[in-house]
Design a protein around this nucleic acid. Structure first.
Lengths: 188, 188
DNA sequence: CAATTTGTTAAATATTTTCTTCACAGTCTC
DNA sequence: GAGACTGTGAAGAAAATATTTAACAAATTG
């Protein structure tokens, strides 16, 4: 009986160690524009392994639709995937535990979108500015401002092209040649 | 008179070109967890050059305290700085137009914080798990779970160390040797 | 095929965040 | 130093977001 009490304490200690990790991950994901409770959900899956929606609900004390939408958001970020437990009916979900893949999935997606969106906006604005600059009628002061904006934009095009190449080098794994992952000596 | 009407149209066209850029930037910054209106503020400063709080207020049709807090947030991200117009009393602010510096400032800050936060959490959790593993009393099943979590954590330590080195290579400019910025042929 | 069970949508509610108005402290000007 | 002006803090209003409850559709089991 005394012994079983001790076991509860050890169990408690294990859980609190998990919570430290979960909170820290949630705080980090908060920085990336992921809501804190979704971050907590990710952290929980990270330390607990694959889970069903009901297990999440129970663990986090939240409603099932919350879990459902939370998981969906994490799937959008490509950091959670569906799995299935053999023989079981319920769907289970598993968090990406490899942060290198997390990094790759998250940032390439984000940056690709940024590049696409902004380059297309720049192209469209650029054309409009060109029309203005080439027109006979427009005042010189307006033309000059248009040219000034084009100068700024041309600088930012360089950036987006660079960012695109960075994404590419992450996707091909080239970046990891330049900045290698340290091998661990003790493991395996 | 007809001519002046035309000038208004050109002016309008110039403004709408600016708006395309502003919206696109705001949408992007939204991805980074910056609120949309703060993103719009940044975009406006980006195309308009340095501005006073009152000019921002007028341009965006918002209150002055909003501008004040918005500018503050952008300063936290290191993407807006104070300046002064010679001879003028009002404080002016200027947006970082060089997106390479923007990238550097923003992500090194964000990632450094991530590394610091998580490594410290891992260290703390690790110690707690060690105590558990080394104890005589704790059940083997609990110990095994603790060891499993340590295995996962040791993987993630590798990641954070790598991320730290990535930050370093951005700060020293090394990354830009690996992935060079394309020189522009036409300009200057 | 009836009865369960699962995951999702829709509507209602609660909570958080953003924004504005008002007030005030610090600065500059004369 | 009085008066005017600038930037920010606090409190409350408004808006946006997150969460829950309720309802339902699809799928599975016996």
């Amino acid at each position: 009986m005394t012994d079983s009490h001790h076991q509860d304490e050890w169990r408690e200690s294990l859980e609190s160690a998990k919570d430290i990790i979960i909170d820290s991950l949630a705080e980090t994901m908060d920085l990336y524009g992921v809501t804190r409770s979704v971050g907590t959900l990710y952290g929980t899956m990270y330390v607990e392994g694959d889970m069903t929606l009901d297990e999440m609900r129970e663990k986090l004390g939240m409603s099932k639709p919350s879990m459902s939408t939370g998981v969906r958001k994490l799937q959008e970020f490509n950091v959670v995937k569906k799995t299935h437990r053999r023989g079981k009916r319920k769907q289970t979900y598993v968090a990406e535990k490899d942060f290198f893949r997390f990094f790759t999935n998250f940032f390439t997606q984000q940056w690709e979108r940024e590049v696409r969106t902004n380059l297309s906006a720049i192209e469209s604005a650029w054309k409009q500015l060109d029309m203005l600059i080439q027109s006979e009628e427009a005042e010189e002061s307006i033309k000059e401002e248009a040219r000034e904006i084009q100068r700024i934009l041309s600088q930012s095009i360089k950036y987006y092209k660079w960012l695109g190449r960075l994404v590419e080098s992450i996707e091909t794994g080239e970046l990891f040649k330049y900045i290698p992952v340290e091998e661990d000596d003790k493991e395996r």
